[in-house]
Write a protein that binds this DNA or RNA. Structure first.
Lengths: 240, 240
DNA sequence: AGACGGATGTGATCCACATCACAGGAAGCA
DNA sequence: TGCTTCCTGTGATGTGGATCACATCCGTCT
């Protein structure tokens, strides 16, 4: 069966092939069945907005497939990308728990499959199941941890170059290329978006990339970036 | 009974007078009793370090009395103050849940009373009690929420003045003075520390205060600051 | 009182980066 | 095949705030 956006929809969490490495999906059968009953499997095209910062929480969005951009916006139009969420992540969780407005905006950057659970249903579900509740705590810890890293990067680094280097290293870790001599990574974001991730301007990102290319630190082939001198990159990442 | 640092120690959470408005203290009697059995009531002098960023989590610290400074440090000696924790807050929670290193450093800024709970005991306690577990989730949501605000402030504001104005407004909200015509607030931090809270240099903070005084926006009497023109301050806070 | 150490106030200097302003590229689509 | 639109690259220019270097100021200790 095909979803509206050309993805295969995983109909049931019970039979989901992705379960093993997902946070929320490896509950014991009984709990999973309950979850099954309250969730709505949905699919979104690229560019869809799941929720907007400031909205009252409607519920949680379990990301099963695709990537979601989480951002914080200022009234004056500035945007700061906080994170790119990967499958297994639960979005809108903290707002749903606390009842306060969503603190970020969530927008799909490719077609996504999502399980939505209404707030009431979800809270009831949690109060019946310690294990699920504990998993929520774990997820939230993870989120907090990430947010702290964000603060660290924004608050303690000296230069834009440092932050960019850190971002590239982090990305190369995530796709398992980090150990290779010349890690490669697909740049899925525009310079503008990268700038929003590290809190700088688009032009600065462009110039930094130009510099790094000049110094043989990276090299780009289309939309893939090859890290030719990881040591130098790490050098930049830890100060100056 | 007096503690080593001249504070009255609340011996038992069951009879604690502060219970009503505390997050962790209003559990049902049975759970509270269990908590009672695994917690260690302790007291710290001013300037004591509860835990350091990067240490493996030993457990949680429930702050009962006093104020604790939470900061993030860079190897190069820079410090960023993330938050001043007030009584009722649970410190080291996310690290204890996730098992990853503490993400911040916690240091008392006045004499504090703290209940410590060892990690194992705490995790066992949670797995036995949905309600406590849910409270943890709530606390973590709160923490995440704060961290997001921090990111917003660091990443989206245009100037140091904006951040300082925001900080002052936030402080005047907390002590309930915000509604008054000329809110007052005790500055418990040095300019240096304020600078670390908003990610700027000490000199800049000094100069900003000087400016605001010149423009009749604030006025200082010893260590209390009087906000003479809250409107102007809000003006600064929302851009420029 | 005197003296010492930390907190504050203020000038001078410098530079990383934002911002503006275009010019090429690439990529979709008609 | 050309047109439109978004992305990328690069110069010129201005400035907020970091940093350095002192001069007070104030509380605390002896």
């Amino acid at each position: 069966m095909l979803s509206p956006y050309g993805m295969e929809i995983v109909e049931s969490c019970l039979t989901c092939k992705l379960r093993a490495d997902r946070i929320f999906c490896d509950l014991p059968p009984a709990a999973l069945q309950t979850f099954e009953n309250i969730k709505y499997a949905t699919a979104y095209p690229q560019g869809a907005v799941l929720f907007v910062e400031g909205q009252m929480p409607r519920g949680i969005f379990v990301l099963c497939k695709g990537t979601v951009k989480l951002s914080i916006n200022s009234p004056s139009g500035r945007t700061m990308i906080v994170k790119l969420a990967e499958p297994g992540e639960v979005l809108g969780l903290s707002a749903t728990i606390s009842g306060k407005p969503y603190e970020v905006t969530a927008e799909t950057i490719d077609p996504c499959q999502v399980n939505f659970v209404k707030r009431d249903d979800f809270l009831r579900f949690l109060k019946d199941d310690v294990e699920a509740c504990f998993k929520v705590a774990e997820q939230l810890s993870e989120k907090y941890h990430n947010a702290c890293n964000e603060v660290r990067s924004l608050g303690l680094s000296h230069s834009a170059a440092e932050k960019l280097a850190n971002l590239l290293l982090e990305w190369s870790c995530k796709n398992g290329e980090a150990s290779k001599v010349e890690p490669r990574l697909k740049l899925r974001l525009t310079h503008e978006e990268i700038a929003q991730m590290i809190g700088t301007s688009r032009e600065t990102v462009t110039r930094l990339f130009a510099d790094m290319k000049k110094h043989q630190i990276v090299q780009s082939k289309g939309s893939t970036l090859v890290i030719r001198n990881a040591a130098a990159l790490r050098e930049i990442a830890n100060h100056n």
